[in-house]
Amino acid sequence: MVCFNMYIFNRNGVCLHYSEWSRPKNVKDGAGTLVDDAKMMFGLLFSLKNVCTAIDPTREVKRPLGAPTPHGEGCSFRSFTTDCYKLHYLDSPSGIKIVLNTSKDVGSLEKQMWVIYSSLYCEYIVKNPLYTVGEPFECEQFVQKLNKFVATLG
């Protein structure tokens, strides 16, 4: 298994963190810049979530596409696979969104995504008193632990 890259967003679409382990196709050949790349990723997550909610067969009240989602409604997806890669997604109730792109030969990483959120993001970022909530971070300790953790996934 190969881990390609990881994004952490907050509810406002700010890309708090970006890690890259292997990215055969350069950003320059795709979105152009990392900022645009992150924006596209966030847009994809947001729209996909909206589509998932719109076609949800279990809910009686259908929401039209594009309408703002009221609190507590809407559903979230966990992952999707293309013929080239697999995207794993975790959406915490506090609006933190973690995206991990891996090769497609891997099963469910739900538990591992939760570990990234609870034992890495919460411990090393949120609890760091010098970190301003809502701003991008580059925390050495976090990156180290993350690299270690990702290495154990394969």
Partner: peptide, 22 residues
């Protein structure tokens, strides 16, 4: 308020609470 903004993530991480719908 500043404590609460951080604390909520710690709370969610430790208790594994799902979304409170209301």
């Amino acid at each position: 308020q500043n404590i609460g903004i951080r604390l909520v993530d710690d709370f969610l991480a430790k208790t594994n609470t799902g979304r409170c719908r209301n």
